[in-house]
């Protein structure tokens, strides 16, 4: 009897949940009606979404949201940010509290297929890497045999580490800790030679070490953590907008269009540039926006390379190398379909 009631309640809850997630179909109309994009970001992750001294959000995840706002409204400031914890991020999207989730979220099959959500691209290819002291004289992870490695226990990081060393026939001494802070302290106190976690994390941890310049992140990436924006399933128009804002920023970088020279480039006779900037064709209409959608994104936010440099690149304290996030034409993975 009780079980029946319980299963009925759960059933109703599930239906209610699905109803909520499937409901607001025309996100673009909703967004236009309220006048801003509601964007879910992290509660604070250096370079991706963190507040600056004035309290404004900055980071590459944040700039993607600004780009979406620029595409829809021609105004990159028409966006509001909801800081979300890892646990509430998907619910917030499903329930319609936010329009897009841009929160260093790894694209996995289960998330893509079982949560009623869609990943609209990859704006940062992350993956597990290694950080060592420069004094160790190592410049490849393959030279790490016999090293002691600091790692957080109970994570996939630990698993990947074991697999990588086994696959490459190397040995290591794990130095494991429960908490991230403990791992940081142990590595800083020289209790291990190597620190391993996701590369973007390594760069920000490096900043917190007592002598950041004495440490380097090795080039090898041993796991796949593609991070990207997420939208609700069942609204293809909004999905397309988010996907193509990211693609437009990549294409702009490939064509050499920056926020500084976009007005100049608008006079270009290159058909690719003309199509991207809305001088030829009606690509904006196809996604329910004006023809200058991509122009606005580039003008107000910049191309992908600019955003990367401004938030996490070599000129910032983080100083992350482009690496796998370089354009495909420069040996990286960032590849956008053409505008045709």
């Amino acid at each position: 009897m009780n079980k029946k009631i319980l299963s009925a309640v759960v059933g109703i809850a599930a239906v209610a949940g699905m109803g909520a997630s499937a409901a607001s179909a025309a996100t673009l109309d909703d967004v236009k009606a309220k006048g801003f994009v509601q964007c879910g970001v992290s509660t604070g992750l250096a370079g991706f979404s963190a507040p600056n001294d004035a309290g404004d959000w900055s980071g590459i995840d944040v700039d993607l949201c600004r780009g979406i706002a620029a595409a829809v409204f021609g105004d990159a400031t028409a966006v509001k940010f909801s800081p979300l914890s890892a646990k509430e991020r998907f619910t917030a999207l499903q329930s319609g509290e936010i329009d897009v989730l841009s929160r260093n979220t790894t694209w996995t099959m289960s998330r893509d297929t079982q949560l009623g959500l869609n990943f609209a691209g990859v704006n940062y290819y992350d993956g597990q890497g290694f950080m060592v002291r420069k004094s160790l004289g190592v410049n490849s992870a393959l030279q790490l045999s016999g090293a002691s490695v600091c790692v957080q226990t109970g994570t996939t990081t630990e698993l990947n580490l074991t697999d990588y060393f086994k696959a490459n026939d190397m040995t290591y001494n794990p130095v494991v800790f429960e908490k991230l802070e403990e791992v940081n302290a142990a590595y800083d106190a020289n209790r291990c030679d190597v620190y391993t976690t996701d590369q973007s994390g390594l760069y920000s941890i490096r900043l917190g070490l007592s002598a950041p310049d004495e440490h380097m992140v090795l080039p090898e990436v041993i796991s796949k953590e593609p991070l990207g924006p997420v939208v609700r399933q069942g609204d293809d128009q909004w999905f397309n907008i988010v996907k193509w804002v990211h693609n437009a920023m990549l294409n702009a970088e490939e064509m050499g269009i920056t926020s500084a020279n976009v007005d100049e480039m608008a006079n270009s006779t290159d058909p690719n540039v003309m199509r991207l900037l809305g001088k030829e064709g009606t690509f904006g209409e196809g996604i329910g926006l004006g023809n200058d959608w991509a122009y606005n994104v580039i003008k107000e936010v910049g191309n992908y390379g600019e955003v990367f440099e401004a938030n996490v690149g070599a000129s910032t304290p983080l100083g992350i190398a482009r690496g796998v996030n370089a354009l495909w034409s420069k040996g990286g993975l960032q590849y956008a379909p053409p505008l045709r």
């Binding site: 509660t43 604070g44 992750l45 250096a46 370079g47 963190a50 507040p51 600056n52 001294d53 909801s82 800081p83 979300l84 914890s85 646990k87 509430e88 800083d188 920000s204 900043l207 917190g208 070490l209 007592s210 910032t316 304290p317 983080l318």
Partner: peptide
């Protein structure tokens, strides 16, 4: 209240620790 994405004093202090302009030991 930090866990529901509201930033009380402690929450906002922790959040600002992640500003890359201020990360230091």
């Amino acid at each position: 209240v930090l866990i529901i994405g509201l930033f009380d004093l402690l929450g906002i202090v922790q959040q600002n620790m992640n500003d890359q302009n201020w990360i230091s030991p």
